[in-house]
Simulated assay, not measured.
Amino acid sequence: MIEKTATIASRVGLHARPASIFADAAGDLDAEVTIARLGEPVEEAVGADSMLALMSLGIEHGEVVVLRTDDDSVADALDALVLILETDHDA
């Protein structure tokens, strides 16, 4: 399993706009990627390609999340997803 962490940079957290941008990018991958708060059990992670699931997490500015995938072929793509989360889309 590949894991990457990211700190949410958008000032109002992972709300509609950043969640949509992130979910669209995750949905373009040919692998399943999940997201959860750092420290939460793997079972509580949600699909990164679902905007509604992302918003249901209620993740706020400054929180750290973990992205996970079992597909080694998308390891580099996870870096791009981290960059999306660590960009302030509310600026």
Results as ranks from 00 to 15, higher is better:
Met1Ser: 15
Met1Ala: 12
Ile2Asn: 03
Glu3His: 11
Ala6Gln: 06
Thr7Gln: 11
Ile8Asn: 03
Ile8Thr: 03
Ala9Arg: 10
Arg11Leu: 13
Arg11Ile: 08
Val12Leu: 10
Gly13Asp: 05
Gly13Ala: 10
His15Asp: 04
Ala16His: 08
Ala16Trp: 05
Arg17Met: 12
Arg17Glu: 07
Ala19Arg: 03
Ile21Thr: 10
Ile21His: 05
Ala23Glu: 00
Asp24His: 15
Asp24Ile: 07
Asp24Asn: 14
Ala25Gln: 07
Ala26Lys: 04
Ala26Trp: 01
Asp28Tyr: 12
Asp28Ala: 15
Leu29Met: 13
Asp30Pro: 01
Ala31Ser: 14
Val33Pro: 00
Val33Tyr: 02
Val33Met: 03
Thr34Tyr: 03
Ala36Phe: 08
Ala36Ser: 14
Ala36Met: 14
Arg37Val: 08
Arg37Met: 09
Leu38Pro: 06
Gly39Ile: 03
Gly39Ser: 09
Pro41His: 11
Pro41Tyr: 07
Val42Gln: 15
Val42Glu: 15
Glu43Arg: 15
Glu44Thr: 11
Glu44Gln: 14
Glu44Asp: 12
Glu44Leu: 13
Ala45Leu: 04
Ala45Met: 04
Ala45Glu: 09
Val46Ser: 08
Val46Glu: 01
Val46Met: 08
Gly47Ile: 11
Gly47Asn: 13
Ala48Phe: 03
Asp49Trp: 10
Ser50Met: 09
Leu52Asn: 13
Leu52Pro: 07
Ala53Ile: 09
Ala53Leu: 15
Leu54Pro: 00
Met55Thr: 12
Ser56Gln: 12
Leu57Val: 06
Glu60Ile: 02
Glu60Tyr: 09
Glu63Met: 10
Val65Ala: 14
Leu67Pro: 00
Leu67Trp: 01
Thr69His: 04
Asp70Asn: 11
Asp70Gln: 12
Asp70Ala: 13
Asp71Arg: 13
Asp72Phe: 02
Asp72Pro: 07
Ser73Trp: 12
Val74Ile: 08
Val74Gln: 07
Val74Leu: 01
Asp76Gln: 13
Ala77Glu: 05
Leu78Asp: 00
Asp79Gln: 10
Ala80His: 15
Leu81Ile: 05
Leu81Arg: 06
Val82Glu: 05
Val82Met: 11
Leu83Gln: 12
Leu83Met: 15
Leu83Lys: 14
Ile84His: 06
Ile84Trp: 06
Ile84Ala: 09
Leu85Tyr: 01
Leu85Phe: 04
Glu86Ser: 13
Thr87Gln: 10
Thr87Leu: 14
Thr87Val: 09
Asp90Phe: 11
Asp90Lys: 13
Asp90Leu: 13
